[in-house]
Simulated scan of single mutants.
Amino acid sequence: MAQGGEGLVYAAYIASNRWRTNAARVRELAVAQGKCRLCAEQGPLEVHHRDYENLGDERDGDLVALCARCHREVTSFLRRARYRPRTPRRADIPLLRDVRRPLVDPTR
Rank of each mutant, 00 (worst) to 15 (best):
M1N: 07
A2F: 03
Q3L: 10
G4Q: 10
E6D: 10
L8R: 14
Y10G: 09
A12Q: 00
A12Y: 02
A12H: 02
A12G: 02
Y13L: 01
I14S: 13
A15E: 15
A15M: 13
R18V: 12
W19H: 05
T21K: 11
N22S: 08
A24N: 00
R25G: 00
R25A: 03
R27V: 02
E28A: 03
L29F: 15
L29A: 14
L29D: 12
A30G: 07
V31P: 11
Q33C: 13
G34T: 01
G34D: 03
C36Q: 00
C36K: 01
C39M: 02
A40Q: 09
E41H: 11
Q42C: 11
G43C: 03
G43T: 03
G43Q: 03
E46P: 04
E46C: 06
V47E: 07
V47H: 06
H48F: 12
H49M: 04
R50M: 06
R50P: 05
Y52A: 05
E53G: 03
N54D: 11
N54G: 13
L55V: 00
L55G: 00
D57L: 08
E58M: 09
E58H: 08
E58P: 11
D60Q: 09
G61R: 07
D62I: 08
L63D: 01
C67K: 04
C70A: 06
C70V: 05
H71I: 02
H71F: 02
E73W: 08
E73L: 15
T75Y: 05
T75L: 07
S76Y: 10
F77H: 11
L78R: 13
L78I: 12
L78G: 12
L78Q: 14
A81Y: 14
A81G: 15
R82F: 15
Y83F: 15
Y83S: 12
Y83M: 12
R84L: 14
P85W: 06
R86E: 14
T87W: 08
P88K: 07
R89D: 06
A91G: 03
D92G: 02
I93V: 05
L95V: 10
L95Y: 08
L95E: 11
R97Y: 08
D98I: 08
D98A: 12
R100Q: 10
R101I: 07
P102S: 06
L103I: 12
L103A: 10
L103M: 10
T107K: 04
